[in-house]
Design a protein around this nucleic acid. Sequence first.
DNA 1: GTCACCTTGACGTTGCGTAATTGTGA
DNA 2: CTCACAATTACGCAACGTCAAGGTGA
Lengths: 184, 184
Amino acid sequence: VKTETITAFAKRFNLSRSTLLYYDRIGLLKPGGKSDTGYRLYNEADAERMQRIDTFRKAGLSLKAIKEIMATNADDSVEVALEHRLACLNEEMADLKAQQHLVVQLLQRRGRNPRQHGVDVFQWVKMLEEAGMDEQARRRWHMSFERDAPEAHDQFLKSLGLSDTEVAEIRGLSSGDWAGDEPE
Amino acid sequence: VKTETITAFAKRFNLSRSTLLYYDRIGLLKPGGKSDTGYRLYNEADAERMQRIDTFRKAGLSLKAIKEIMATNADDSVEVALEHRLACLNEEMADLKAQQHLVVQLLQRRGRNPRQHGVDVFQWVKMLEEAGMDEQARRRWHMSFERDAPEAHDQFLKSLGLSDTEVAEIRGLSSGDWAGDEPE
DNA sequence: GTCACCTTGACGTTGCGTAATTGTGA
DNA sequence: CTCACAATTACGCAACGTCAAGGTGA
């Protein structure tokens, strides 16, 4: 049987070692076995259990609640469907959280550069890229910004010093590249 | 000037008294004034500050981070636009969280009724209603369930004992009322 | 023997909730 | 006088992070 030590297992699920130690302590996820020297060894069954735990965690359930669910559950098709649905919701939430994170980053940077009152488009794009946003992500950002809060979007773009026509383009009232690529 | 005591103020923002006490202690939101007997008195300026705090909190920021942002921020139009955007994102998140909550409730109830293996539509609808879901909400639920995970949706509905035609109707491949109202 | 890994504690952190004890005001 | 409010102080909680003091193995 294939087994992993705690740190390797943690990395697979993007968790920290101490998190797994904690889960072991509270009895949420005990490793399948231990080496003769006391090292925790996690197997594939543990991985599956961990996967489900992860889903529930992302849904905001407490560890205690998760423990209870996992204890009483014989997984028939209803559970499977619901858990699938839950996983989808979690993905959508992750998307939104990423956007939130971005907005917050922008606000924080503004706070830390109080003297820089007039920022231009290029600086903003640079900041967005540093924050891990590529062009496609920027397009999506503008689309949902426009959908949710068109006038705030307009105000925001104008505050960057863009002309009315440029603003209109970005807001989707026209088409074509913007953001400094092929300014033609 | 209009002022409120702590509990009244807390209710307006759906917070607990102790939360406000805590915010005062850490210097995040000090009341505008105090009565001669030491009662905290909150005014409209406090309310506006609280509103912003709430927005940032819903975005998942730590109280410390919020404090820093609010300290350095002179609010020009960029901040206003970004904060507006943030508020929108928070609303969307709240929607998704409500859905998550629902799914979780359903899973938990299943866990607590392990003997009830075959549940029918009526029981489900009853459970959904107990969870605070009206018919309109149920429609929305099915629409997004179908959009995100059509085959899980199908599986789920069939597991409730619905016929293929009924399933098709609910999934939007047809139209009309379902869920037991006016069964013809 | 070195070094990166593992072990079990114990204590620190955040954002409050709760309980105890006491003062205020209609 | 009573009763719902206010105050402060203090301890408790989840879900970890972190640090200490030591074993393990390539």
